[in-house]
Design a protein around this nucleic acid. Structure first.
Lengths: 148, 148
DNA sequence: AAAAAACCTATTGACATAGTAGGTATATAG
DNA sequence: CTATATACCTACTATGTCAATAGGTTTTTT
């Protein structure tokens, strides 16, 4: 049970991008560098985000990436879906016919489904904007530490 | 993001065991057979459950397995922990020093931790007894279908 | 003594993940 | 118009985990 690096890096990179864009695009290698992520790996991640309509890109010198949506209309569920495919836990089914069907059904309805529902609702209510605000708070707090 | 077969099979087998024990032990191969699970694989699963103090075993003819605890005192979190180790999502950390530390921290505190908390509380409040009751309800419902 | 059960350890095949490598295409700046 | 900076594309690889299989040994009952 885990969250892939792909999604984690993608989300971190989007937070970074949202913070550093000033109507202009931001270069992928800058983002990769600021976050300690392999450039080549982040390329693949951004390709998927672009295909999903989450990012827009500009080629050539001074090119880079832009958010295709406002951060408060970009849900984290979309991002995870674009990067990892369906994040729901796999359905539990008895192998053949009805041997152990009741038991499999119970695992499905009493464990898998409730967890799926929670994660789905949770990621569907979380926007990039929220995460960016948190990152700013965190940075402010870290800065304050220096001045005490 | 998924639940392992190991845990799924383990839980299903425990539901079966709880339903079929009558103060006597139940043979592993019967459980495996009833649930369409490989005997050899279930052996490994039961070995782990025994080491975790969830099952007791009796060797020799007429031997088999018994629950080591009452079903209403056996939490599903224990079972998953015994079979898969820690089921919490891995911690998100910036790779080196503080490059991207704020972003990594946000992923950790705003995504990973809330999901972990939910799953932990959920599995910690779910007992085997509850699952057995559900399985019985499900079987009754399936039986009723025949008589309509 | 034979058989039935648990118990133990090693091996395997398939697959996914995380990353690397080496290029091509396109737009801008000079 | 050429060099360069950027995105874009496809293939490959190393590692590890999961799900199972295989082939035994040990213990206890009958």
């Amino acid at each position: 049970m885990n969250f892939s690096k792909r999604s984690r890096y993608g989300i971190r990179a989007l937070i970074d991008l949202a913070q550093n864009t000033e109507y202009n695009c931001v270069q992928l290698n800058e983002i990769a560098d600021r976050n300690g992520i392999s450039v080549k790996y982040l390329e693949q991640i951004f390709a998927a985000l672009r295909k999903a309509g989450i990012l827009r890109s500009v080629k050539g010198p001074q090119g880079g990436y832009l958010l295709a949506k406002a951060p408060d209309h970009l849900w984290i569920s979309e991002v995870v879906l674009a990067l990892d495919g369906d994040y729901c836990l796999e359905k539990e089914e008895a192998r053949d016919g009805n041997r152990g069907e009741a038991e499999a059904q119970v695992v499905q309805s009493e464990i898998i489904e409730p967890i799926n529902r929670y994660i789905d609702e949770f990621l569907n209510s979380l926007t990039l904007k929220k995460l960016v605000e948190c990152a700013e708070q965190y940075k402010d707090a870290a800065n304050d530490m220096y001045y005490i």
